[in-house]
Design a protein around this nucleic acid. Structure first.
Lengths: 124, 124
DNA sequence: ACGTCCATTCGACCGCTGTCGAACACATGA
DNA sequence: TCATGTGTTCGACAGCGGTCGAATGGACGT
């Protein structure tokens, strides 16, 4: 059978209304998760699969971060075949925490001279 | 004997302008620190000494949290004799991260069923 | 049926940070 | 000078969370 309509199934996601500020801040306090959110904000909805993100971590870790974001009501995901497409729940999250997501999306990539790097890179 | 001027000396504090979003979120992700901020917001400026806060942690831990808040540009402190009085740098922080502090100060104390602490019972 | 691709889950490791008691430093008042 | 009250600093400990490789589960295409 030729490909018919893709069976896109929405999976359970947390409603931002039920998210305590504690969880929201913890979720956003991770740089990888913020990178995911910023990437997602720059694309049409439901066009990026998890694997297409350019993240500095392994697949397992990335999956963990997606789960956290979903649990915090920050994104909604849809299974389309083997891929899992994401959408940023911008309006919903903004209704719960006005301005918070905006700060994240507007974050500068801090191109500084790497004062914040984790350990002795001994580079440059 | 009365009438000697209180020698209030301002100590070094970080300018919110120099604070990366990363640090701000990490600072606000701690419930004790948010409690400090909310308490401070409900009082006139420079009227609360560190010891007068009703915090669920030891003196040493409280001191640590005050240091973090100071380093994040969230509060300014003045030494008045043996006491260290604090002021919430509301406007300055709001200029750097519009709306963020507002969310914290408006936070509900979550009186609900969920006891936020996962363990640490029978302390002291 | 089978293999492939995609994402999650599992177990383990490790560093960071929140936590504490005790010791210290400082300013003040007797 | 000493005692007191206040806040910080010093080790030390514990738990959480981010991280990984490997194993697992599903959904196609052939």
């Amino acid at each position: 059978m030729a490909g018919q309509a893709r069976r896109t199934r929405t999976l359970r996601h947390t409603d931002p209304k039920d998210v305590p500020l504690q969880d929201a801040l913890e979720a956003l306090a991770d740089p990888v998760r913020r990178l995911i959110l910023r990437t997602l904000a720059g694309e049409p909805e439901f066009t990026r699969a998890c694997g297409t993100f350019d993240l500095p971590v392994s697949k397992a870790t990335a999956s963990h971060h997606f789960a956290v974001l979903r649990a915090t009501g920050l994104l909604e995901q849809v299974d389309q075949g083997p891929r899992r497409l994401s959408r940023l729940r911008r309006a919903e999250f903004d209704a719960r925490f006005p301005g918070l997501l905006g700060l994240v999306l507007a974050e500068d990539e801090q191109p500084g001279p790497a004062p914040c790097d984790t350990h002795a890179a001994a580079s440059r």
